[in-house]
Design a binder for these strands. Structure first.
Length: 826
RNA sequence: GCGGGCGUGGCGGAACUGGCAGACGCGCUGGACUUAGGAUCCAGUGGGAGCAAUCCUGUGGAGGUUCAAAUCCUCUCGCCCGCACCA
């Protein structure tokens, strides 16, 4: 009796079996090469979506494939469990965020298991669990001890909707990355991590990451934004003791400076205008600009506005007096917050100068050019020779940069300097659901770190859920009130929590020894498993998580806690899942969930489709009919195996290897070769699957062409078994079931990956294309090893080719053995 | 504006290092089986001409290199992504 493919029945059965057998548990084994496969862990929203299903399917194929290839694979999963949605849900459902999170984790884990993903659940981590965030706090203190965590008063990004501050990386085009509200600026005292200290290394080591997508590396490079130049000091004419420092990448244009423009936030602005007639006007302007949001201020149409302060600086190179202005386009956060204006050679300065009637003085003249400050219509930022620059005249500007900076350095008025766009990482969050920053403030001792032995600093448990938001830690008196770890006197705890990105910056290390009680991770474990060999996740973390995790890894490396200097050797940024050309969303009504697919077709079908429809790094358009196709293919295999099983039981087949048999063998081995290559070297699962489909088609053709009694059942059986092995990483349940149906022992997933036999790949005869003037005009069949000369002869003898050539001249013959012959005739 | 990527049938996508464009799948057309088919199987399927053998044409567009170009070069158009007053 041939049974039907019934995924609902077999998938649950094998999932249960694998769990009972602890099939995917991994342990250190020094005799085998380790392989760390990791998918970015999810926020436990409680709802698995297609993006999740895609990333897990990709990771699972690799994990299962590599196990069969003999690697000691670690494939863990966990929860990025702190964060705002839990608080919002807590208010909505009047339930403690911890409980809400716990429930979601339970639900999501079930959904993941229903997909048949081969995780080692014994390594599960939850960043919101005290035994995890204890170590997040410990790492914060490590940073603190190493001078990398500090508190400062600063102008910071504030999201009114989320009621918390944000790091620069978490602001996208002036909007909050999470809720898209307009981000404001506020002056607050906040905790920062000194990621800028690692800017140079984070930038340089991108070169080591050969197996990272270029675009991710470029995004990080842009974000870090290194520029070389000089810092130059200008003395203030009216306050001879005071100076203004400015950063420029063009010290060669110093003679062309006709203004000094300060950011509205610049600390000197107030002093410059104090008590002058311009004071009110300037301060009003500053206040107005500072009220603007970042988008308003940086909008393309935003005009460059500046106000004269009435004060002047002295140009250190030529002693000239230059007016000091305040300009809305100057950013306090970059360089020194003061810009020397060189209108002739910088477009912004040019626009600004034209508007404010400042002189434009050309100091770099391009080869053969005759620039004139009075008539030029745009700035000239290119290279050339220096003019109007005193003793530097005639120098090429590249040379001039060095010479001028050296000159200033000698006089103590400037120096070479490298500036980064990257800012220190603001990690304080004014929210409840995060890891408390382990700091205590004592009137006697000041800022005191919580001793390691007092960790974790636990969140208050009796969460108040009456208002419209979960109150922050400052609200809980029993949490705030504490005693000083140093003097024992009364003290108050820091009430901000840490950015959740802290927790996700080291979770891949915790997986290596998730139950470690006296350290964040065990040295032997972390050194064995790290680095992550293959990391898979969405491109949206190109700068955020991936930069932070690299930073943490480097700090831990410097502290000699780990041997890896980079966390992720290979990175795969998987594409998005769309439907009908748009992101899946409730409002568009185009949502398909993994649950629905599993219910309707089974997990194997869903996995197969998602991997077959597009290469992993490309965006994927979900197509319901395409899913049907994948399901049809699995049913086709099922039926094939069932029919063969019946046949093996009743018909004794022939043992002969004839032409058809060798052809089937050849296809089998060619498929093994291709599938292995496609998974291992290219991650092109779509072409690997199509190769398996072709193999199945070939088996069908073989069976269709010969009567059952003449079929070679040994070969057939071998071919079926190898097909199952090839398909095992993609469709783990169906292959496990059919593996057993064919009478095999043990799990299919514990078998060795099939090897191909090159001898089986050789063919006796090949078809060669014959071209005339590059156009295909015929085909000939020749022995596979037919050498060039004979190839040409055989082609020449072909009747049709002969006719076509006729008595025309053969100018040239190109013969490529195994491929083609091309006659160039005239 | 700068940087990166991508343009191939009705659709998703193949094509190693320049060597038969369109594998595989979806869809569509015809046929078989069937009370029925939205199951299954077989055949066909880039466009155009032809009864046909066959011919012409075709990888966003225009040039070029080459015996040979989806692939290499130049220009150009379009789309997507990132950065964008960064001094």
């Amino acid at each position: 009796m041939v049974t039907n493919y019934n995924p609902a029945e077999i998938e649950g059965k094998w999932q249960k079996q694998w769990a009972e057998d602890n099939s995917f548990r991994s342990e250190i084994d020094y005799d085998r090469t380790k392989y760390y496969v990791l998918e970015m862990f999810p926020y436990p929203s409680g709802k698995l979506h297609m993006g999740h299903m895609r990333v897990y399917s990709i990771g699972d194929v690799l994990a299962r494939f590599l196990r069969m290839r003999g690697y000691n694979v670690i494939h863990p999963m966990g929860w990025d469990a702190f964060g705002l949605p839990a608080e919002n849900a807590a208010i909505e459902h009047r339930v403690n965020p911890a409980i809400w999170t716990e429930q979601n984790i339970g639900h999501m884990k079930k959904q993941q298991n229903r997909l048949g993903v081969s995780y080692d659940w014994s390594r599960e981590v939850n960043t919101s669990a005290p035994d995890y965030y204890r170590w997040s706090q410990w790492l914060f203190l490590l940073m603190y001890k190493r001078g990398l965590a500090y508190k400062k008063q600063a102008s910071v990004n504030w999201c009114e909707n989320c009621e918390t501050v944000l790091a620069n990386e978490q602001v996208e085009k002036g909007l909050c990355w999470r809720c898209s509200s307009v981000v404001e600026t506020r002056d607050l005292e906040q905790w920062f991590l000194r990621i800028t200290e690692y800017a140079e290394r984070l930038l340089n080591d991108l070169d080591i990451l050969e197996d990272w997508p270029e675009r991710v590396k470029i995004m990080q490079k842009n974000w870090i934004g290194r520029s070389e130049g000089a810092e130059i000091s200008f003395t203030i004419k009216e306050f001879p003791g005071k100076e203004i420092k400015t950063f420029t990448t063009r010290p060669d244009t110093l003679f062309g400076v006709t203004s000094m423009v300060l950011a509205p936030e610049h600390p000197l602005v107030k002093k410059l205008v104090e008590g002058t007639e311009r004071e009110k006007e300037v301060l009003d302007f500053v206040a107005r600009v500072r009220k603007e949001s970042e988008i308003e201020r940086t909008a393309e149409e935003a005009p460059k506005i500046g106000l004269f302060t009435g004060r002047h600086v002295i140009n250190p190179i030529n002693g000239e007096e230059v007016p000091i202005l305040v300009g809305n386009y100057v950013l306090m956060g970059y360089g020194t917050g003061a810009v020397m204006g060189v209108p002739a050679h910088d477009q912004r300065d040019f626009d600004f100068a034209r508007k404010h009637k400042l002189p434009i003085r050309v100091v770099i003249q391009p080869e053969g050019g005759k620039l004139d400050g009075n008539t030029m219509s745009e700035a000239y930022p290119g290279e050339g020779n220096m003019v109007n620059s005193g003793s530097f005249n005639g120098l090429h500007n590249e040379e001039g940069m060095k010479k001028i900076t050296e000159h200033l350095k000698k006089k103590g008025l400037g120096d070479f300097r490298v500036t980064f766009r990257l800012r220190d990482w603001l990690i304080s969050r004014q929210r409840y659901w995060g890891a408390p920053i382990p700091i205590v403030y004592c009137d006697q001792c000041g800022t005191v770190p919580v001793p390691d032995t007092d960790l974790p600093v636990e969140l208050p448990h009796n969460v108040e859920l009456s208002g419209n938001r979960v109150p922050g830690l400052a609200h809980y008196e029993e949490f705030v009130k504490t005693s000083c770890p140093t003097c024992g006197g009364p003290a108050r705890r820091e009430t901000d929590t840490m950015d959740t990105f802290i927790c996700s910056s080291w979770y891949f290390l915790r997986y290596t020894s998730p139950h470690s009680k006296d350290a964040p991770f065990k040295q032997s474990e972390v050194d064995y498993w790290m680095p992550v060999d293959q990391y898979i996740g969405g491109i949206e973390h190109a700068v955020l998580h991936l930069l932070y995790a690299r930073f943490f890894t480097k700090v831990l490396f410097d502290a000699a806690l780990i041997k890896a200097e980079e966390p992720f050797s290979r990175l795969l940024a998987q594409g998005m899942v769309y439907k009908d050309g748009a992101k899946m969303s409730k409002s568009k009504g185009n949502v398909v969930t993994p649950d629905e697919i599993v219910e309707k077709y089974g997990a194997d079908t869903g996995r197969l489709f998602i991997l077959f429809a597009a290469p992993p790094e490309k965006d994927l358009d979900w197509n319901d009919q395409g899913v049907e196709g994948s399901n049809r293919f699995l049913r086709r295999i099922w039926r094939l195996i069932e029919e063969c099983r019946e046949q093996f039981a009743s018909v004794k087949g022939s043992g002969e290897i004839g032409e058809k048999e060798s052809e089937l063998e050849r296809i089998l081995h060619a498929t093994i070769k291709k599938v292995t290559y496609d998974i291992q070297e290219r991650f092109n699962f779509n072409t690997a699957i199509s190769a398996i489909m072709e193999l199945v088609n070939a088996i069908y053709s073989y069976r269709l062409g010969i009567e059952e009694k003449d079929q070679n059942s040994d070969l057939l059986k071998e071919t079926l078994i190898k097909t199952i092995l090839l398909l095992a990483p993609f469709a783990p349940h169906l292959t496990e079931e059919t593996w057993h149906l064919l009478g095999n022992e043990g799990s299919v997933h514990e078998q060795s990956w099939p090897e191909f036999d090159s001898a089986k790949l050789v063919v006796d005869e090949v078809e060669i294309v014959v071209q005339i003037n590059g156009k295909v005009r015929g085909r000939i069949v020749v022995p596979a090893d037919c050498p060039e000369e004979e190839l040409t002869l055989a082609a020449r003898e072909d009747e049709r080719i002969g006719e076509l050539i006729g008595d025309r001249n053969i100018v040239k013959v190109i013969a490529v053995p195994g491929r083609l012959v091309n006659f160039v005739i005239r």
